[in-house]
């Protein structure tokens, strides 16, 4: 036996404890949720008063809100990252501090501000669109971060080669830098989608919890994550644990699929 492996042994034990903890969490969600996860559950409406029933609107709301937010913030985030990385920008340090601070800002703080500004000042209703605005504020710094990392991954030599051939800075960005970082950008996009799909705190206050039966961007829209919180803490149905868990399984599968897909596309782009 090799000498001096005590701490490595300790590390292995800690690893086992951590793995067991996560197995316990994921296992218990699956265990409680899988039996209730039927097509009927996925494809029907929830009961507005008790919180039981299906999760079809939550599924749709989650998809719509995450999709809309990404469509808005992905180009905005890329633009900020490109300007910061590729042009000699003044106040780059300030921008970076702001980005990092916003990135770690508690999402409920974003919810608080969006509520004041959108609902209080602009008289937007608590609705899907207001929720999207909150998600956009949450996601913009994240997109700037992942896009910045992707640009950072492009070897400086590529840029120099392009500039040396007489290309302008913008041509270099469009034809060399962005194509070279595309795979990483797609992966970042996937991570952003996963992160947004799991968001709950900011949405509870901006997009609301009750599910209306008509489709409108100006009506409250509950997402899967919010639904889990709602039925587990305020719900009245008897099987609320199971219903919440089944929603949780759905959400996690959704997130895993998004991450896996973005990874596949990124691999293919490489």
């Amino acid at each position: 036996m090799k000498r001096g492996m005590v701490w490595h042994r300790v590390a292995a034990v800690l690893f086992a404890i951590a793995a067991a903890g996560f197995a316990l969490i994921l296992g218990s969600v699956l265990w409680a949720g899988l039996p209730d996860l039927t097509w009927h559950f996925l494809a029907s409406w929830p009961n507005e008063r008790t919180g039981g029933g299906g999760i079809l609107p939550e599924l749709i709301n989650t998809g719509v809100m995450v999709g809309l937010t990404l469509v808005i913030t992905a180009p905005l985030g890329l633009a900020v990252a490109v300007y910061r990385r590729e042009y000699r920008m003044r106040r780059a340090a300030t921008l970076n501090h702001l980005r990092a601070t916003l990135l770690s800002a508690p999402t409920i703080v974003v919810g608080l501000v969006v509520y004041r500004v959108a609902v209080g000042w602009w008289h937007w209703p608590v609705s899907l669109l207001t929720g999207c605005l909150a998600l956009a504020v949450i996601n913009w710094p994240f997109m700037v971060t992942v896009a910045g990392e992707a640009l950072e991954g492009v070897p400086q030599g590529y840029r120099e080669a392009s500039l040396a051939l007489g290309a302008s800075r913008w041509q270099t960005i469009r034809r060399v830098v962005i194509p070279a970082s595309l795979a990483q950008l797609v992966e970042g996009l996937g991570m952003a989608a996963a992160r947004l799909a799991g968001e709950s705190a900011a949405l509870i206050v901006t997009a609301g919890v009750n599910v209306s039966r008509h489709w409108s961007f100006w009506a409250p829209g509950e997402t899967l994550a919010v639904h889990i919180w709602y039925i587990r803490t305020e719900g009245l149905v008897l099987n609320r644990d199971a219903a919440a868990a089944a929603t949780g399984v759905t959400l996690m599968v959704l997130i895993a699929v998004v991450l896996w897909l973005s990874r596949r596309i990124a691999r293919w782009l490489e």
Binding site: L24, V29, M191, A197, G198, A225, I228, R232, G248, M252
Partner: peptide, 15 residues
């Protein structure tokens, strides 16, 4: 890292 907070909350309530 992408597992949503509410899943952890659910587990916390459960166990």
């Amino acid at each position: 890292t992408a597992v949503p907070s509410v899943i952890f909350g659910w587990w916390g309530l459960q166990m």
